[in-house]
Design a protein around this nucleic acid. Structure first.
Length: 153
DNA sequence: GCCAACGTTGGC
DNA sequence: GCCAACGTTGGC
């Protein structure tokens, strides 16, 4: 059981969208380090903090759970998709996705600003490796964040 | 909308 | 395999 932080732009796909759908494929990851983590480390049953980026108040806004481990991201094969990758083939897929299920909104979202100001969280990749879209969260930080977020289920 | 930081590409 | 040029991300 591990903890992760997945970033998403709420204008594209928000925690509200996930609540509506209850479950979705986390697709469109086109960064090798993020892909490698999805493929090699993210496992069914892991807990995911959902983070809204590129928006007015960047923040951790809720929780999800990994319900299917990595498999080829179908959008790489779809010429209509913004994530189409002509270098990928069915025989040699380049990108993977996992499926996640909605677990709840945070009663108290944790803003990036608050994360940076919190000594227990200042080491997070969110602070130091902001651009990585699949981030590791250690158990201690995860416990602390869960207590702050008060996720409503 | 700016721009710093960082990731990717491709010529050599 | 280096590294310059270029593209993207994302906080501000």
């Amino acid at each position: 059981m591990a903890y992760w932080l997945f970033k998403t732009e709420p204008d594209t796909y928000s925690i509200d969208d996930l609540q509506r759908e209850q479950r979705c494929g986390w697709e469109g990851i086109r960064n090798y380090q993020a892909r490698n983590r999805l493929r090699d480390s993210v496992q069914q049953g892991d807990t995911v903090f959902i983070y809204h980026s590129s928006c007015k108040v960047p923040a951790i806004v809720g929780l999800a759970e990994v319900v299917r481990s990595a498999y080829p991201d179908p959008t790489q094969f779809d010429p209509q998709s913004p994530w189409f990758d002509p270098r990928a083939s069915q025989d040699a897929p380049r990108w993977v996705r996992v499926d996640v299920a909605y677990r709840g909104h945070a009663e108290h979202p944790l803003t990036l600003k608050a994360v940076k100001q919190t000594p227990q969280l200042a080491h997070l990749e969110l602070v130091n490796r902001g651009r990585l879209s699949i981030q590791e969260v250690d158990v201690a930080a995860a416990g602390y964040m869960l207590s702050r977020l008060n996720v409503l289920t």
